[in-house]
Amino acid sequence: MQTISTTAGWTAAARELETARADRFLEDPVTLCTEVERRQWHDVVVSVLGYSPPVVPVRARLGDEVVRAAAEDGIRQVVSLAAGLESRVLRLDLPEDLLYVEVDLPALLEARSLRLAEAGPAARPACRRVEVAADLSGDWHRSLEDAGFDPRARTLWVVEGLLPYLDADSCHTLLRTVRSLSAPGSRLWCDHVHPDVFAAAHYAPVLKSLEALGVLWASGWTDPVAQLAADGWRARAWTVKGLAHPEPDNPPVAWMPPVPARTDTSDSGYHWLIWAHTD
């Protein structure tokens, strides 16, 4: 719980910092972070690197576009696993008949509900939003179906900021479960880190600070496309750096807005952003 709740607050703080920029790539009016979380994000990460890592706002903005594209294509079921303090369902104007399910640990959902209540009218989604309190290491799919999830319908799965904290076997198990619940034409948006980040000298102070707080990355992928193929998905993957400077042999997809060159930072080559689908 410590790792999950801590990083949820930090990513909210990172989105808030991006929103405050004049040249922002992401605008997130409901970030739900506390002053303590803002200070921790600054002390543990920003002050060490000299900047707020761009992966969080880039991932969030492109995730917004994934959800919009899915809704425009008629998908009416979105499931966000380890939703944390993500406010995507609040900042997007989604169809009223779209079911948006947010799955996370009970304690985190309770804390999130309190912060949403404090946010007031701005925290009211346009679509049908449902929370599912569950541990993703357990039998969570039954709770998902009890909340109205239909495994026969096309689904967009959003798995942001979770996979790096799982060991390789747990990643595989989770993605196989998600695939088993996915009807033909379903989609997946997720992220992971490249294992080279663990040996990057400039990133070592950040990893040391994270370890002191019990916030640890447990795995990485050198080839997300092959990894997802093994779990039943057809995938494409980009690093944040690769999207800031598009590569001819792996261009962005049509729904992706241009990622600003300023996001090419010393860590942006280690973070994968992954879009996948079922046949």
Rank of each mutant, 00 (worst) to 15 (best):
A168R: 15
L210Q: 10
L188F: 07
E145A: 05
R176E: 10
P248Y: 14
L228W: 10
L213N: 01
S182K: 04
Y203T: 04
L163R: 00
W189P: 01
A201R: 14
L181A: 04
R236Y: 11
R142T: 15
W233I: 15
T177P: 01
A235M: 12
L207K: 08
S186I: 08
G220C: 05
R154D: 07
P184Y: 11
L216H: 08
W221Q: 14
H192E: 15
F149K: 06
D139H: 15
R176W: 03
G220I: 07
V197T: 06
S143A: 13
L144C: 04
P205T: 04
L144F: 01
V240R: 15
A230Q: 10
R179S: 05
V159I: 01
R187A: 14
F198W: 12
H202F: 12
S170I: 06
L216S: 09
D196V: 10
P164Y: 06
V197M: 09
W157L: 04
S143P: 07
L216P: 04
E160R: 00
A147P: 05
H192G: 06
H245V: 15
W238L: 01
A244I: 02
E145K: 00
H245F: 09
S219N: 07
A183L: 11
A229F: 13
A226K: 10
L175V: 12
W233M: 12
S219E: 04
A237T: 02
S170T: 13
